[in-house]
């Protein structure tokens, strides 16, 4: 169903960090087709509006989303009570496409809430360890309080899962610095690596540049981009980035396509 939202029941709504919440949703009646990691849904808060939100988890028929309340709709969604219903359309957009990275080392690089769309990718990679080489997960956040899914990364780290923050109090004993500073600890062979990158646009550009410099081929650097979206069906025109309609040709695109477009100011 792509035009009209289907009702989904809010099974749980728990705080993730101070300004993010994780919702788990189940279909009331008819269910949407299966989502792939990297794809997104349009979530409708009754009477308030509808916004694009990536899938952050895909366990047994439920949809999991992690949201930051930044405006009218995202705040309304952060406030939904378990038992009530929201509208969901989808799945939309391109996914991370893990099968295309078969046999390659995997490098997951997340900035802030950018870890949300990468989480189902990590879960899929962990469940099929023989299909690919080494799995590296690099996570950056503003402060230790902004790190998502705090209990999970311990179970993720084979061979490497690192976390870094921009600013930290004395209680933080981990890394401080931008996420690319973790690259030296990761174990990967650049030209045999596929990278999956999501975060603020400046972080995506800095990471892309560094990975290219280290020899990861541009088309094997997969980045997830964000633009304004209203329909998600390629009809509203808002998500254009030059030749791309990001709801259709993205949000996940190869860095070979993204780099020249992101380099143009106000494209």
């Amino acid at each position: 169903m792509t035009a009209v939202p289907l009702p989904y029941r809010v099974v749980s709504n728990r705080p993730e960090t101070t300004d993010t919440r994780t919702l788990t949703l189940r279909p009331v009646g008819e269910a949407l087709p299966a989502f792939a990691p990297g794809q997104f849904a349009m979530l409708y808060a009754f009477g308030v509006g509808e916004i694009p939100v990536s899938v952050a988890g895909l366990q047994d028929g439920a949809l999991t989303h992690t949201l930051r309340g930044v405006g009218a709709v995202s705040r309304a969604l952060c406030a939904v009570r378990p038992g009530t219903q929201v509208g969901v359309r989808g799945p939309f957009g391109t996914g991370w496409d893990l099968p295309a990275a078969t046999g390659r080392d995997l490098l997951v690089v997340a900035g802030g809430i950018g870890l949300a769309p990468l989480r189902p990718l990590v879960q899929a990679a962990l469940s099929t360890p023989r299909n690919h080489g080494r799995l590296n997960i690099l996570i950056g956040a503003r402060t230790p309080e902004d790190l998502l899914y705090r209990s999970e990364p311990d179970a993720w780290g084979r061979p490497y899962c690192g976390m870094t923050v921009d600013r930290a109090g004395p209680e933080w004993t981990g890394h401080v610095g931008v996420v690319t500073t973790l690259l030296d600890q990761a174990a990967f062979t650049p030209h045999e690596t596929t990278a999956f990158v999501c975060g603020p646009e400046v972080m995506i550009r800095a990471t892309g540049r560094e990975l290219l410099h280290r020899g990861v081929p541009a088309q094997h650097i997969r980045v997830s981009l964000e633009r304004n979206m209203h329909c998600a069906t390629g009809h509203c025109g808002h998500c254009q980035l030059g030749p791309l309609l990001l709801c259709r040709d993205g949000p996940v695109v190869g860095y070979d396509r993204a780099e020249p477009l992101l380099a143009v100011r106000e494209l």
Binding site: G47, G49, E50, C231, H235, C236, G237, H238
Partner: peptide, 9 residues
């Protein structure tokens, strides 16, 4: 063809 959406109650 560009459009926007309005949600009203």
């Amino acid at each position: 063809f560009c459009t926007t959406t309005e949600d009203v109650t």
